[in-house]
Design a protein around this nucleic acid. Structure first.
Lengths: 288, 288
DNA sequence: GTTCCGCATGAATCGATAG
DNA sequence: ACTATCGATTCATGCGGAA
């Protein structure tokens, strides 16, 4: 099984034109938010954000497979004490151009940026918007099942303490039966709220999101040898995870240094895969 | 201190006209979602939702104080496999009519039990949209401070049955010691993600949300003797909590049976307060 | 080999000050 | 009046060094 990883350096609106129609299984990306990343993307103004993003979303719509999914990680800024509506406007605009707004996952960032303001608490969540070309898309739900977590444990404990069978009728819909099934299994399906901490430990290169985020969506929407695309690659978290999970991938970034960096890392990993017998040459802490 | 609780029976668009300008400190409500509660509100169609809600939101804008807040609990339905955009359109429309969209809190319903559909996981969150008349509004942030900014941990601390279970993957390792650390540590401000278990304790009538939800916002945005309004009262959770927290309140509902029921409950509680020889201070720190 | 403490560091936001 | 920049605020996390 040979996996390819393509890194393209340039403006993604242009570079996307080089890709074929209906060829990508999953687009997972986190574009620069409005007024952020000024040094690299020129800091798109909130009022111009939709206009800036629409041409890119059109290209993504072209290159994605009818069965593919587009996950867009984005959050609106506060402007003059108010949430700026550009994300809402973007969703509506993308729908007009043919995208289906299938779902909105919530990424709950447990360690969000600190701060206290008179009118506001810390913003600790971001949107993960799912768009599709078609009502029928591929989704491998079993790939992201989780060990039965807090919910089930607490729930089961409470149930066992009180009575199991009586109260179920009120809640309805065979609640009790399902419960007993779940106790036999160890895995349950997750919900549409994902909680992960942001990684603040990278000394060399800060990633916008932790690896577990693209990992979850790559497992959910692709299988091995499928094609993953990140048109705003940045430090390459998506691409690296895709490679690790044996998915083909294409990353695009406007900054050459990121492209070089990610290429190097991917090459190193390929090397490691080859030399898998000698596992101790990594930069991991040598025990003793 | 004499607290009043007014229950109005009728269509809220009309009944709201009886209220005075700039008189309400907090509106907390959960309107019927599109296509829900067909028997009472005629099952508003998603496509007509904005049109239906706008006259009501205008009245709310009129009666709310310049320093007041409007918390709208709402979530869009899935229609034909796609999230319907009526909530997004509503936010944009309300902004055009003068509302400020200050914040979007996320209510994470932690114990909504797992479930799945072919293309969809369990939906375990809802929007709590905050709208304001003015950039300057009242917010009593200290009233909702928590020991270490995570509600889940609070819950774990309070639930002595389950105090061995940790929210995340970190198991073992002196969990009990950590608990004692939490109690020593100072109070911190929460974030804009609210975790609450969905309570299933209402025997007679299903409430849209647990009491802890309006409690949090009433504590955050009002002080004692302020006025709380819920124009879609339903089973009256908001009104009951407001009364408990010594806030004046007005509840409106189109169904007479709800109005009668809530009135009865409030009266009963007043009786209890009398007979209990006023030993009723909660463990919350009193304000004002 | 553990456990514990100290420290740096984030897709931030507000209000004040300066041009 | 409007934009641009700066300082103050604040907390979960994971690392490294120390007991």
């Amino acid at each position: 099984m040979k996996i390819f990883t393509k890194i393209l350096n340039g403006n993604c609106a242009k570079k996307l034109k080089e890709l074929e129609n209906d060829s990508v299984d999953l687009v997972f990306t986190s574009p620069p938010y409005a007024d952020q990343r000024k040094n690299t993307y020129g800091g798109i103004k909130p009022d111009e954000y939709v206009e800036w993003f629409l041409p890119i979303s059109k290209e993504i719509l072209r290159v994605i497979k009818p069965t593919g999914s587009f996950i867009l990680n984005i959050k609106e800024r506060v402007v003059n004490g108010e949430r700026h509506p550009y994300v809402l406007e973007l969703i509506l605009a993308m729908r007009k151009h043919g995208w289906l707004w299938t779902e909105e996952f919530i990424w709950h960032k447990k360690n969000s940026y600190p701060g206290k303001w008179p009118n506001r608490f810390r913003d600790s969540w971001e949107r993960l918007l799912q768009f599709n070309k078609n009502r029928k898309f591929k989704m491998y739900q079993e790939a992201v099942m989780v060990p039965m977590g807090d919910w089930a444990k607490i729930r089961l404990k409470n149930l066992s303490k009180t009575d199991k069978i009586r109260d179920e009728s009120k809640v309805g819909s065979g609640f009790g039966k399902n419960i007993s099934n779940w106790t036999k299994r160890d895995m349950v399906y997750p919900t549409n709220v994902i909680h992960t901490a942001t990684e603040c430990n990278n000394k060399n290169h800060s990633a916008a999101f932790p690896e577990s985020l693209p990992e979850w969506f790559i497992n959910l929407f692709t299988k091995k040898e499928d094609l993953v695309l990140d048109p705003f690659m940045g430090s390459g978290t998506t691409i690296k995870v895709a490679h690790l999970l044996k998915r083909n991938s294409i990353g695009i970034d406007i900054q050459e240094k990121y492209c070089t960096l990610v290429s190097t890392i991917i090459d190193q990993k390929e090397d490691l895969l080859f030399k898998k017998s000698k596992k101790n040459e990594t930069n991991k802490k040598p025990r003793g």
